Computed example of a mutant assay.
Amino acid sequence: MENVRISAGRGRDWLLHKGYPVGDGIEMAASPEQYDGGGQYGVEIPVINSYRELLQVTACLDEAGITVTRYNETHGSILLSDAELKDMFALCRDRREGILISLGPRPEYDVKSTFYRTPFGLEMGRQINNHDAFRACVEETVRLADLGCRGIIVYDLGVARVLAEMREDGALPSDLVLKTSSHCMATNPFLARIFAENGADSITTAHDLGLPVLQEMRRLSPGLPLDVPIDVYRTKGGFIRFYEAAEIVQIAAPVMLKIGASAQGHPYDTVSDATTRERVARVARTLEMLDRFLPERSYISNKSRHCCIPV
């Protein structure tokens, strides 16, 4: 049978010459990369937005005999008092687990971002459109770092670039980790590289990326940790990738597996005890699948700065 002719010409030839991907039909290859300090992967539970929720999930994890790498807060730092943040950091520090706090103000709270709250404005993502909000994000980062936070979730590429510059100048701690949110929409390897070149220490990938894209993200940005959602909220599609977890660890290492979101319909839903138990069950199920298909995997060392353990 005659081979099928591919609809491509000089553009494809140029991509091939540069060693760039030209299609999704590529063979999987194991990544040789690891976290600083060692380890292929870690586990992150998202949407831990208060001290009460942190107490709930840690109690449930202890009951199940499960250890995770870190948690992340997603509603925004401006909603949390110094006192509550200190309690959250102290609990994580005592447990030798990390936590990342997301920056605010974001457009959903910003008085100057009315356009964002329209159907058209939502398409621009959570980009900041005024200097006052930008300054507030910088001030919030300084506040969080002073309180002991060592992991920040950034929603705006410009903010990430400035925070990286501040860190380089010594205005922020040198061990502060800057992670881009999934809302930055790193949907291909070249966007991932742009985020890394502008200060991101790790990126949360877009939720639905296939294995070929994740593999090429790793290949074109060696050493850049990828934070990959294994399950998502029902309002984001509700999919669960248990059967791909082993492949993701192998091809994307160093990789943080984000697990537990599918227990909720929406990230702003009220979290009940039942929701927390379901989150932990999702973590347990993923680890069970890894035990079955990748028993020789290596876990991130708690000496890695990417654990984001508060100081």
Rank of each mutant, 00 (worst) to 15 (best):
N3C: 10
S7Q: 12
A8P: 04
R10Y: 15
G11D: 10
L16V: 09
H17I: 01
K18C: 13
Y20P: 04
P21V: 03
D24M: 13
G25S: 13
G25P: 00
M28D: 11
A30M: 11
Q34W: 07
Y35I: 01
Q40N: 07
N49F: 02
R52Y: 00
C60Y: 01
C60W: 01
E63V: 03
E73M: 05
H75R: 15
S81D: 07
S81Y: 06
M88W: 06
F89P: 03
D110T: 11
F115S: 05
R117E: 07
T118Q: 03
F120M: 14
F120W: 10
G125P: 00
I128T: 13
A133Y: 03
A133H: 07
T141P: 05
V142D: 11
L144K: 04
G148P: 02
G148R: 03
C149M: 02
R150E: 04
R150V: 07
R161W: 10
G170A: 05
L176H: 02
H183Y: 12
F195C: 08
E197K: 13
N198I: 02
S202W: 02
T205Q: 02
D208Y: 04
D208W: 02
Q215I: 08
E216D: 14
E216K: 14
E216R: 13
M217F: 02
R218E: 11
G223P: 12
P225Y: 00
L226Q: 04
D227E: 15
P229Y: 08
T235L: 06
G238R: 01
F242K: 10
F242D: 14
I251G: 11
I259Q: 01
G260A: 07
G260V: 07
S262I: 00
A263F: 06
Y268W: 14
Y268F: 15
S272P: 07
V280C: 09
V283H: 08
T286R: 10
E288Y: 15
E288S: 15
L290Q: 08
L290E: 10
P295W: 13
R297K: 12
